[in-house]
């Protein structure tokens, strides 16, 4: 994806050198500029910390979603997997009879990854469309979350579990640190590991990738496992931040995650995109919500405003690649 050709040549070339995330960088800067102009408190340290903390859950989910969309797939189950894992983690912690915290987290993350592997097995085995497989998993995980929690939030989260949501390392909130760490890890895996290059190859042209000896099955298996894993990490961060596991935690989050990844310049057709773009996309979506609150925009109009800003961000890209 490249920028609109109407932009003057010098700027266009400068932006093109930024790669597929150029549009996201421009949109990000525009919103920061607009925000600081409209709301005096927008660029204060406290509000920046708020935006970063509020974006942490969406952010970790968007990392997994980036991998999936780069392979030309989609994972609609992440929101409900986040709901389910937030409830499971809270239950393990509150009713696990003193189960050590690392085991609570490992069990929860393993559940997320296992759901991802199951998605991938059906997708690979039946050559099924990821859209419908993960749609089914979305219903299953959502139902499971309501069933195990009996429809109510599970409380009792305290101590070092709650610290993950509310604590600080130096001046940086822990969830922000977790999000940035996951983004960095994701970017390194994409750029420097053979698997990362294979993700781009599979998304760019699956048949060509297969003929060049890449195991499509293995790539997809790992990719959906990463997606489930990151959704489970989101579930842990959610439950730590809100101090309850909530069967409605991730409702609609899958769409925000997809929007964040696509705003970040990753093509829904696969093969093109960066982790930096997804980070910016996540921040853009969170900043829009934050700004609408700061500006006291009517709640009825907020969806309208959010949709328009997303559309404007998308039009910064040209339709052909």
């Amino acid at each position: 994806m490249v920028l609109q050709s109407r932009v003057p040549g010098v700027i266009r070339r400068a932006l093109q050198s930024l790669g597929p995330s150029a549009g996201a960088i421009v949109a990000f800067l525009l919103i920061v500029l607009l925000g600081s102009f409209l709301a005096p408190t927008f660029l204060t340290g406290r509000n920046i910390a708020n935006v970063l903390r509020q974006s942490s859950i969406l952010g970790v989910v968007a990392v997994g979603m980036t991998f999936v969309i780069l392979t030309a797939g989609i994972d609609l189950s992440v929101g409900m997997v986040l709901s389910l894992t937030s409830v499971v983690a809270a239950l393990l912690f509150a009713e696990g009879q003193g189960l050590p915290l690392p085991f609570v987290f490992l069990g929860t993350l393993a559940l997320g990854a296992a759901i991802g592997v199951f998605n991938a097995l059906i997708i690979v085995w039946r050559d099924a469309a990821p859209f419908i497989v993960t749609l089914a998993m979305m219903a299953i995980a959502g139902g499971a979350a309501l069933t195990v929690s009996n429809g109510r939030p599970i409380g009792g989260i305290s101590g070092s579990y709650a610290w993950i949501g509310a604590g600080f390392v130096g001046p940086i909130p822990v969830p922000v640190l977790a999000m940035l760490g996951v983004f960095l890890l994701g970017a390194l895996v994409l750029r420097y590991t053979p698997y990362g290059r294979e993700v781009y190859a599979v998304g760019g042209n699956e048949e060509a990738a297969r003929l060049s000896g890449i195991s499509i099955r293995r790539v997809k298996l790992i990719t959906y496992a990463i997606s489930g894993f990151s959704a489970a990490l989101g579930g842990i961060i959610f439950s730590a931040r809100v101090t309850v596991g909530d069967p409605w935690a991730g409702r609609g989050l899958e769409l925000d995650a997809i929007a964040a990844v696509v705003i970040g310049g990753t093509s829904l057709f696969g093969g093109v995109g960066t982790m930096l773009g997804s980070l910016l996309g996540t921040l853009i979506i969170t900043m829009i919500n934050n700004l609408l609150n700061l500006l006291n925009v009517s709640p009825y109009m907020q969806g309208l405003a959010k949709g328009i800003v997303i559309l404007v961000a998308i039009t910064l890209y040209r339709k052909d690649r």
Binding site: W248, N289, N290, P299
Partner: peptide, 24 residues
């Protein structure tokens, strides 16, 4: 100042943070 917190704990927390920042 009127903002929606969607009756959920998470949204109530997020919106209160934002409203407090804009209106100390």
């Amino acid at each position: 100042v009127r903002q929606a917190g969607d009756w959920s704990r998470a949204s109530g927390q997020r919106v209160t943070e934002n409203v407090l920042t804009a209106n100390p």
